[in-house]
Nucleic acid binder design. Structure first.
Lengths: 249, 249
DNA sequence: GCTTGCTAAAATGTCAGACATTTAATAGGC
DNA sequence: GCCTATTAAATGTCTGACATTTTAGCAAGC
């Protein structure tokens, strides 16, 4: 794959890293394939070798590419990508059409993890945590219309992130970054009718209530119900389906 | 905090990043404090500015420090550290005496997450996955003596990592990196008597059996039992205690 | 006295060019 | 045919100069 179709860019090495990172996430290069050489990138984007090297260093840090002196740069296997790196989440969230396989994998993770997080939050949340969740929930309610989908999604994001934070665990908190790509993908599949939005709101409300009441098991169940709704909205499972996304043998 | 007590080093920028990263993880600088300037680091370690900048770039990528032109370099809050970055795990695992708070946080995460992972593995594992878990388990059995603690811990690590891989989820798999610092800490608290080692082995065996049998709920329970044993061995809870480490309000 | 604005210093960021090192391919000798 | 030396090509490193950003200090003006 050549880089002819990539647009010129403006901004520093970060912008270049983002551009290349997103191209890799979008599948412009296959794993194992050789990546363009530094000097070619310099020429194509009309930037200094320094900027290219800085950008490539970011890509290396996220496990997208692997570089060896004399050999060149190759694209890593998907299983080696650092999906939990905040940079990666940001790039993924900014993609127009993220790889459905990736979205599905991330959602499958959320489906198994988030009930546990909600349960932890119900045990550990203090007043400030509950206030944060509540505020996000209020925002979701106010923006529950098709016209304000973008703002609604932001509040949705804040809601779930607040729950991760409320778990009061450093590791789970870091994982909140993963929410952005998963939730931003909702905008693409914007089959947000009034009915589904209302249903989604009710389910979110039950999670909030359970956490506020300090009921871990109820929070766990409620979180799972929220994710079932999200799975439908993401187009991962069909509307009527009662089955859940799970990893088959 | 000055860097007078840091040893000279040998190796490239990676080694320097490791040295500085481990010093940060060990708490040599407080969050918010200013970090030494590039030129001071050059002088102290007798390396080029290039190497220093590369090392500092790694530290920036892991969220340990934050750099601003003209302002300088400051140490980030612990909550901003990218604990899920593989580099971070490696540094943390290599520490002689990692911060007990961090070890506890990571273990608390494992305690809530690993039962879920085991359950997923019981659903998703194929023959190769089970073989990998089995092989690690055999290794643990063979090295179950105080003399071979180091090798035993490696097999222990392989056992848990194989379960993460068996979940067949890209995100959970990435999280396997976290195991190393958590399990390596076991070497420090090496109160491995024959009895505890035997008990630990039995519990690990039950996880393997449940996954092989494809029984998610049994796997979940068994994984929790393994972690209760580990919590004792890590000195997180007392021997007789039946209570579990959890995040209090 | 307080604010405003200019100036200088100090830190990180960037550039350009030469050189070092590693890897792989290639040609040559036996 | 195999082994070795050479060459080419890629990434890695060093150096010095310069750019940019931020902060602090100082001075002028209201």
């Amino acid at each position: 794959m050549s880089l002819d179709h990539l647009p010129r860019h403006q901004g520093g090495a970060d912008a270049l890293a983002r551009l290349l990172g997103q191209a890799l996430l979008a599948g412009s290069w296959q794993p194992g394939e050789v990546f363009p050489r530094e000097l070619d990138l310099c020429k194509h984007f009309e930037v200094s070798r320094n900027q290219v090297r800085n950008a490539l260093a970011s890509l290396t840090a996220t496990g997208l590419i692997e570089r060896t002196a004399g050999r060149g740069t190759r694209v890593c296997q998907i299983s080696d990508w650092h999906l939990l790196d905040p940079l990666m989440s940001e790039w993924l969230a900014g993609l127009e059409a993220p790889d459905p396989k990736l979205v599905r994998e991330i959602f499958a993770f959320r489906y198994s993890a988030e009930p546990v997080v909600a349960s932890l939050a119900a045990n550990a949340a203090v007043a400030a945590d509950i206030a944060a969740i509540e505020q996000a929930f209020d925002g979701m309610r106010i923006t529950a219309s098709a016209q304000q989908a973008a703002r609604h999604v932001e509040y949705d994001l804040a809601f779930h992130e607040a729950i991760y934070r409320a778990s009061h665990n450093l590791v789970w908190r870091q994982m909140g970054h993963l929410l952005r790509p998963s939730i931003m993908a909702l905008i693409q599949h914007s089959q947000h009718s009034v009915a589904t939005l209302d249903d989604s709101l009710v389910r979110h409300g039950r999670v909030l209530a359970a956490i506020r009441a300090g009921q871990p098991q109820a929070a766990e169940r409620a979180a799972r119900e929220v994710l079932k709704r999200t799975a439908i909205d993401l187009g991962i499972v069909a509307e009527a389906a009662d089955t859940l996304p799970s990893n088959e043998r």
